[in-house]
Nucleic acid binder design. Structure first.
Length: 565
RNA sequence: GUUCUCGUAGCUCAGUAGGAUAGAGCGACCGCCUCCUAAGCGGUAGGUCGGAGGUUCGACUCCUCUCGGGAACGCCA
């Protein structure tokens, strides 16, 4: 049952000029839950009624006849506060979690509709560092959240697997390539080649031309160029897949930039036919009027550019997947670029351009400044994950040396800490990377939530049969600590919905921290494994509900929930 | 220069469609394991919500201006 709707319905009986829906929109949750479960602010009625808000509240109170589930109504200042029948509320929430289990929290909003999510998209032949982590984990979380809400999410990795740099790479390989090094440490060897040829450009400017020629050969289908390119891509993918495995991230399609090579000509043709393409300074662009600079479609040399490729990919995806939304996860440096080509798609006459969404996130830097691969100011994801796992291992050895599956748990917690950290604030915020902060496992962190989950599991494990006792008395959960846990569980579905609508996984991160905090307080205040069978069974029901919701929340973020740690 | 974005406690951040006394975590200080995992719990200290106007019964929230950080602004992606 929806309590808010119910209250709105009852209130509508005494306010003739507002509908139940309008009232529902005005109803809010008091900051101080001691005031009640819902509050109706009377301020905005003051004009219509030409009365002071406190008087309106008083009058409404007198006219109002509360029915279940409302147990108490009070007028406080300009507010009319409603208190629900607590036992009924607790029962409703806990039974919902029990019945729905790991589905609790989903409103099944998607109805099986397709949503394309474009995330990660690393550049082939470059190392995977913390800067690439964000798109990957945000995209993965959204993938899970949309799936949980009943959509059919389609995860696409738009790999940076094409462009002039591959010509340079092939040229470098022809000069200094070392097959053994490439097989052993592919990314490092590829990066070395890339760095070396750029370093040599001053003395050997002809390398520039060699690279250009090799890329031309690649585009023209030259057999050797194709073979080497494919080899480099495959080498990189092995490495990337190893990292995706560690992170627990997966994709439905690895359609990179190269995938669209043979599809762009038709799109350029279409833009031209629709009279959108104009010549400008030797290039061909689509004019976007006053508000934005023009969008380049063909460079002066006639070659396509990333906007062309993105438009082509969007048209392909619409045709292939008939998506309801297509979401791109990149940092905000690309904001203008996306606005521009979204507009082009719109000008091409496609109304579904409105379904293209660019969800941008903040940039990562270190205290030394920008992350720059060439200047060596990078934090490799491998190092980060290994440091984190190592620290978790040390903690386990110290506090829980007899834990079985130590390695597995250390990985789950260490990697979980990194993912959780990345998803804990609004995604638009910039991040200044800091090792100490990163590897702190106290307070609002992944390990804290995982620990809380493991704690709940531990109690359930020790409870024996009573975990499934049938005689429950929800009146036993009327103490503040228990009640506050239930209140947080109650709004979990709304938070998941909001996280999806706003494409903001951090809402879920914050929510599960809050649930964990409430639970730890409850755990501290209320002994669970007591002699009184009914009390024990009832409290265990609460523990089980918390365990379920924490596990769901962590899963939606792409984080594991070990039963012991 | 133009546009976008961020500015809340020493630090990192929440703050829902404007609403009741602005909240967490970390760090600091003080407490709590004969008891279900102390990666935990409690307490103390810490704020002119960058600044100035405006709209409103009411502004951290909306508008204008301003200061400071970050970013984008045609042939890289």
């Amino acid at each position: 049952m929806n309590y808010k709707q119910e209250i709105a319905k009852q209130l509508a009986g005494v306010i003739d000029f507002l509908s139940a829906d309008e009232i529902e929109a005005i109803l809010e949750v008091p900051k101080d839950r001691g005031m009640g479960d819902f509050a109706f602010p009377c301020f905005r009625l003051a004009k219509n009624l030409r009365k002071a808000p406190p008087m309106i509240a008083q009058d409404l109170l007198e006219a109002f006849h509360a029915e279940a589930p409302i147990s108490k109504v009070e007028a406080v200042g300009g507010y009319l506060n409603f208190t629900l029948d607590k036992a009924g509320f607790v029962k409703g929430v806990l039974e919902a979690v029990m019945e729905q289990g790991e589905k609790y929290g989903s409103k099944d909003l998607g109805q099986g509709k397709n949503v394309v999510i474009d995330y990660s998209a690393p550049n082939i032949a470059k190392p995977f560092h913390v800067g690439h982590l964000r798109s990957t984990v945000i995209g993965n979380a959204l993938y899970k959240i949309y799936g949980f809400e009943g959509y059919n999410p389609i995860g696409v990795n738009h790999l940076g697997d094409w462009g002039k740099q591959f010509g340079m790479l092939i040229a470098a390989y022809k000069h200094w390539g070392d097959d053994k090094a490439l097989e052993e440490e592919p990314i490092k060897a590829l990066l070395d080649l890339y760095v070396k040829i750029h370093a040599e450009l001053d003395e050997h400017p002809e390398y520039e031309e060699e690279g250009r020629a090799w890329f031309k050969a690649l585009e023209d289908g030259d057999e050797e160029a194709q073979r080497l390119w494919k080899w480099f891509v495959d080498l990189s993918l092995v490495e990337f897949n190893r990292i995706y495995d560690m992170l627990g991230v997966s994709f439905d399609h690895f359609t990179g930039e190269s995938f669209y090579n043979d599809k762009m000509e038709a799109v350029v043709e279409e833009i031209k036919e629709k009279n959108l393409l104009v010549e400008s300074e030797g290039a061909y662009v689509v004019d976007l009027g006053e508000e934005m600079p023009p969008c380049i479609i063909l460079k002066r040399d006639g070659a396509t550019i990333y906007a062309t490729r993105d438009i082509t990919a969007a048209l392909y995806r619409k045709k292939t997947f008939d998506f309801e939304k297509c979401i791109y996860i990149t940092d905000y440096a690309q904001d203008l670029h996306f606005q521009q080509w979204f507009k082009v798609v719109k000008l091409m006459g496609y109304d579904w351009a409105d379904d293209l969404m660019h969800e941008s996130f903040g940039r990562v830097s270190t205290e030394q400044g920008k992350l720059q691969t060439r200047k060596g100011n990078v934090i490799l994801l491998d190092d980060l994950l290994n440091q984190s796992i190592g620290k978790v291992q040390a903690i386990i050895d110290e506090r829980n040396p007899n834990l079985e599956d130590k390695e597995e748990v250390a990985k789950a917690v260490g990697i979980g800490a990194v993912i959780f950290n990345d998803l804990s604030n609004n995604k638009i915020r910039d991040i200044v990377f800091n090792w100490e902060r990163m590897l702190s496992f106290d307070g609002e962190t992944g390990p804290y939530v995982q620990y809380t989950h493991a704690r709940a599991c531990s109690v359930l494990r020790k409870s024996g049969e009573t975990a499934y006792a049938e005689n429950l008395d929800y009146n036993q959960l009327m103490d503040p600590a228990s009640l506050e846990v239930v209140q947080e569980l109650a709004t979990f579905p709304d938070v998941v919905e909001q996280a999806m609508l706003r494409n903001e996984p951090s809402l879920i991160t914050r929510k599960i921290v809050l649930i964990a905090q409430r639970f730890n307080k409850f755990y501290h205040d209320c002994p669970i494994l007591v002699d009184d069978e009914v009390l024990k069974g009832t409290r265990l029901a609460l523990v089980r509900a918390v365990k379920t919701v924490l596990a769901t929340g962590l899963d939606l973020l792409g984080i594991q929930a070990p039963e012991k740690m």
